[in-house]
Computed example of a mutant assay.
Amino acid sequence: MKISVSFTLLLLLGSVPASEGVECQRAFPEDIYAALRETTASLVQLKADVTLQTTEQAAQLKTEVDKLKQQQQEQAAQQKTEVDKLKQQQLVRQVAFSASLLVAGEATIGPFPTATPLIFKHVVTNIGNAYNSNSGVFTAPVRGAYYFEWTVGALGDNSYPSAAVLVKNSENVFMAFEQQAAGFMSSSKGVTLLLEVGDVVFVRLHGVAFDDYNHHTTFSGFLLFPM
């Protein structure tokens, strides 16, 4: 029985041509090489894809980090601006001044041919630096309600009054007026004004004004509240 099977296998093997056997033997290595080349190419492409993706992700991450840094810088700058603005607002809420005509000595000012601004040189208080002692002009640093008071003293001679007008920009507001034949005389007025930023207020003399170490002729003002 074993001899018959072996003989049959030999006959079958003998019937396959030699060239077909060689081709079958060669087909397997060539397929393996092709598969290896394809796998290698796939690995190279995968590596390139991974490298590109990593580079793109790194660039995107850097862009996001730079954007966050920029936002933080803008927020910090905005916060600083707001803090500075609040500080400035707090400062301009503190406005008050008082001044008299002469620093020392005594003198009668006027009369002048035309109404002349008085310059109050002896500054007692100037919180907020809104009053200018070189020009006698108060400049509003913030929009709000302000209160002003001015007093004019003089020695009466029945010729000229102690008269002075408070001026807002170019508008006469109120006049303080007193006239008598002899002796010391004085007049005072007060007023509340709504001022815009940059509005100016000063006192204009229309008669005579006297001042000495007692500081009879004065000009004062302060911010009641901002608006």
Rank of each mutant, 00 (worst) to 15 (best):
Q57C: 10
Q79Y: 12
A35H: 04
A163E: 08
P111E: 04
A59G: 14
E171Q: 14
A163K: 09
T39D: 13
S4H: 11
S133E: 13
T151K: 06
M185L: 15
W150M: 04
A107T: 03
S100C: 11
L102G: 03
L224N: 00
P161H: 08
E64S: 13
V152I: 15
A35D: 06
E74C: 08
N126W: 00
D49A: 11
P29H: 05
P117C: 10
F112M: 03
Y131I: 05
M227W: 03
A18L: 09
V152M: 01
T116G: 08
L46V: 04
F177Q: 07
H122Y: 08
V22F: 00
E74T: 10
M227P: 00
R26V: 07
F184V: 02
T81V: 13
L118R: 00
A99I: 04
K189D: 13
G221V: 02
H206V: 06
F138R: 00
G183K: 01
A182G: 08
I32W: 05
V167G: 06
Q73H: 10
G105T: 09
S186W: 08
T51L: 11
G21F: 11
A209V: 05
E149W: 01
A27P: 04
Q79G: 06
D84P: 09
V44E: 14
P141R: 08
G136E: 06
L223E: 00
M175S: 15
A35T: 08
V201C: 07
F202Y: 15
F148T: 01
A145V: 05
V191W: 01
T40L: 14
Y146S: 03
K87V: 12
E149P: 00
A164E: 04
N129H: 12
A130L: 07
S4G: 09
L11C: 12
S4P: 08
Q179C: 04
Q94Y: 03
L10M: 10
S100E: 06
Q180W: 07
N214E: 10
V167E: 07
C24W: 11
T8I: 14
D157N: 15
V152N: 01
L36G: 07
Q88G: 09
E196Q: 05
V103C: 04
L118G: 02
A35Y: 02
A99D: 04
G190A: 14
K67G: 14
A27V: 09
V191G: 00
A115H: 02
A176N: 06
V152P: 00
P141H: 09
V50A: 14
D49V: 04
E149T: 13
F112Q: 05
Q53P: 07
S133D: 14
N158L: 11
E64Q: 13
L102Y: 01
K62G: 06
Y147K: 05
G136L: 06
E38C: 06
T108A: 00
F184E: 04
G136W: 01
S100Y: 02
T8V: 13
E20Y: 10
F97A: 01
S170D: 14
Y213I: 10
R37M: 10
A181G: 11
V124G: 13
P17A: 11
I109N: 05
L86P: 07
V5Q: 11
V123F: 08
S6L: 15
S42A: 13
K67I: 06
Q72M: 15
A181P: 08
V103Q: 12
N214A: 13
R93N: 14
S100Q: 06
G153L: 03
V95N: 03
S19E: 11
N126L: 02
V123R: 08
A96E: 09
I109W: 04
V142M: 05
T108C: 00
G183H: 01
